[in-house]
Simulated assay, not measured.
Amino acid sequence: MTSKSSFLTFLVCAALIPVLFEATDAQGLRSGFYKKTCPKAETIVRQTVASFVAKDATVAAPLLRLHFHDCFVRGCDGSVLLNSTKGHLAEKDAMPNLSLDGFDVIDTAKAAVEAACPGVVSCADIVALAARDGVALNNGPSWQVETGRRDGRVSSASEAVANLPSSFGEIAELKAIFARKGLSAEDLAVLSGSHTIGNAHCNAFSKRLYNFTGKGDRDPSLAPAYARTLRSQCPRGDETSIVEMDPGSAVSFDTSYYTRVSNGKGLFRSDAALLHDKVTRDLVYQYTGSASKFFRDFGVAMGKMGNIGVLTGARGEIRRHCALVNA
């Protein structure tokens, strides 16, 4: 995955990977938006992501998470990238976002794109493209990313807290949060599959191990043997250690996450919650047996998510630096 041969194979074959759904012109976005104004934009982003993954394959998961956390707060406008200012906390400093990573990849891609086409390509589009490319480089699907997003100028930590789903969320809460963003229970099930890559801090799930109902108990939906393994990795009170969300598959985008969920080995309570609704439960079992269906549905769901609340046309701006609004 991190070899030079894999890197070169990706660059040569990326354009040949079948598009998983038909491109549409939603909310002003379109395929090939930068074809005339910055024709190498998508190639530059792809090469940047590939160079980082070649050194560390685990960076793909943070890029996917950045896109998700961006889109669920104010829409896909790059607001998750903005720095806090004096007296104002931005999204990246909200509690749910303190473990976000991958900002250096986005900044590097932005600098390279700016060198080629100053003031043309938005940070929001770079985030969307980088998420897609990171997944493809971790043996996952590719999909058509429509571009044309512009960057927002507002970023609020309180809005991040209010809009991001919790890793401890139950199914009704999760479905309601997704519905507010125009996403279905089916989208919830398939996008949860992103947990097949990446790591998590112990404090994101330790309540399931030590104090599930406030009585020092374990979440009964968690397989006992898996719970013992997690306790050995995350001692009581551990806030800093990390574990693989899908052990043995943390850098390979596949369906093993769904197998684990069906066996009571989903890391988060929100993973286990998928079994508490017929629609999401049925999809957990379907995806367990069909990588092709999962990949196809994942591409479609990512396309829908990438259209949430986008700024196009004259709205927003094209930031020169992703962490700062233009003067």
Rank of each mutant, 00 (worst) to 15 (best):
N83M: 05
S206Y: 06
D297P: 11
R260K: 14
D271H: 15
A162E: 10
K92A: 11
F294Y: 15
R228H: 01
D56Q: 14
S122E: 05
P18E: 11
S252D: 10
L11C: 05
G148D: 06
V310K: 02
T85F: 04
S158Y: 08
D238F: 00
A128I: 12
D297S: 14
Y258V: 09
D277M: 08
V19C: 07
A130K: 06
F294Q: 05
E42A: 14
P18T: 10
L164N: 08
G87N: 11
S6M: 07
E186M: 09
T255P: 02
I126G: 04
Q286T: 15
D187M: 11
E239T: 14
K304W: 07
K265T: 12
S292Y: 03
Y34S: 09
I126W: 01
V19G: 15
R319G: 03
F52W: 15
G102W: 00
D219E: 09
V190S: 10
T196C: 13
V73C: 03
R150N: 14
R260A: 11
A26C: 08
E42N: 14
H201D: 03
V190I: 14
G119E: 12
A291P: 05
D271I: 13
R208Y: 01
L209A: 10
K86N: 05
G140R: 00
R180W: 03
V145D: 02
L98I: 12
L81H: 00
P96T: 09
A327R: 11
S51N: 14
G169K: 03
T108C: 04
V19L: 11
R30H: 13
A323G: 10
F7R: 14
K215C: 02
G134M: 02
R65G: 01
N211W: 03
C202Y: 01
G32F: 05
G148M: 08
C202G: 09
V105S: 04
S241I: 04
C71Y: 03
H88G: 01
V53C: 08
T85C: 03
